[in-house]
Design a protein around this nucleic acid. Sequence first.
DNA 1: CACTATAGCGGACTCCAGTCCGCTTTTGTC
DNA 2: GACAAAAGCGGACTGGAGTCCGCTATAGTG
Lengths: 208, 208
Amino acid sequence: MSHVVPPFELPMSDPAPVERERADARRNRERILCATARLIDRVGIDCMSMDDVAAEAGVGKGTLYRRFGDRSSLLRALISEPEQAFQDALIRGDAPLGPGAPPDERLHAFGEGVLTFLDSHAVYIQAGERLGGGKRYGHPVYAFYRTHVSLLLGQALGETPHHDYLVDALLGPLSAEPFLYQRDLRGMSVEEICAGWHALCDAVLAQG
Amino acid sequence: MSHVVPPFELPMSDPAPVERERADARRNRERILCATARLIDRVGIDCMSMDDVAAEAGVGKGTLYRRFGDRSSLLRALISEPEQAFQDALIRGDAPLGPGAPPDERLHAFGEGVLTFLDSHAVYIQAGERLGGGKRYGHPVYAFYRTHVSLLLGQALGETPHHDYLVDALLGPLSAEPFLYQRDLRGMSVEEICAGWHALCDAVLAQG
DNA sequence: CACTATAGCGGACTCCAGTCCGCTTTTGTC
DNA sequence: GACAAAAGCGGACTGGAGTCCGCTATAGTG
């Protein structure tokens, strides 16, 4: 199962204790993730109840919740592998996404990367956030992105007033809800959305 | 005088209730709204269940839902009066919020107005959106704001590429979730948030 | 005032997320 | 291998959102 990943912590949020996983726990975790993917494929993300998942996986609800905490986290877990890969690419990957390119180029590459990621996965994130309730800003991924953009913007512009605000403003359109609105309700192509974000980014970069 | 808003109709969030309201319906609507306000005051917005509201108001749940559709709409209804007043001020109020001032000034005034409104009411909107699920972009209020900002930006800059995208990007930080994040999690004052938005707005205006 | 069509009403009901707690399996230790 | 502690397990249970449908009050008409 390519989407099954060990329960590591997200980078730089935790020193990662990583205890050994019991065999039955591992088996059930895999079953649950597979069952979730199967169910989403069969009935759609909105009609998939947690009871369904437990039944499909052949485990009890208690097990499901012990593992994944809530619906939101379960859906996140489904995409944790590509999410991790993207974060790695930001830190260790090739330029311009990774280190080596000038900060403004990296910033543009970052936005494009997030939007491409959203194109594949926004539906899961959005569905998770819907019932999770305001998860976005509290999620470690947001903190990670924020640090990254803050750093790049600082490198590009130096100390500027409203630095922090502009970081959030740049990240705003890179979240699932606005993306899905633009793509599905406004009918924009991913290229158009990317181009729009580049324009926003340029505006902010020019401002400094 | 290109910045004067032509007298065409902008979409309003609450199309006039053309039909006469039955006496019992009116009585119950008032009871429900009062009960909701009382309950929020007493137990807090998150602990207030719809059953509680119905019981406190002395009506059945059916009545509650017939009236207000869902929890999200009930919470919206609580602030519909000031919301309406703000929208009126945008169309018919004094400059710079209303017509008469140059578009860039009106844009700045709009942002400040929304943020001030959010400072009082974001909690209700956010609580509603949490269980409503992605209501923001589908809500008539968003369409109204969108039209308004689009018009002002168009007057200020003329036809520019990515016009629509930038409108959404400007509106992004003016929604409840980012606002509450900035105010309550990041500990920013409303003044700082306003100043940040002005900077964003200036960046976009300078870009054209 | 009597009549009737219809808007309004209420609460039992369904469905689902998330919790609780007693039972089972695993793992480390001797 | 025996044992105890710890980790894992499962499904009954709770509580709340939103629906359904038969009953009731209202307002318009003669």
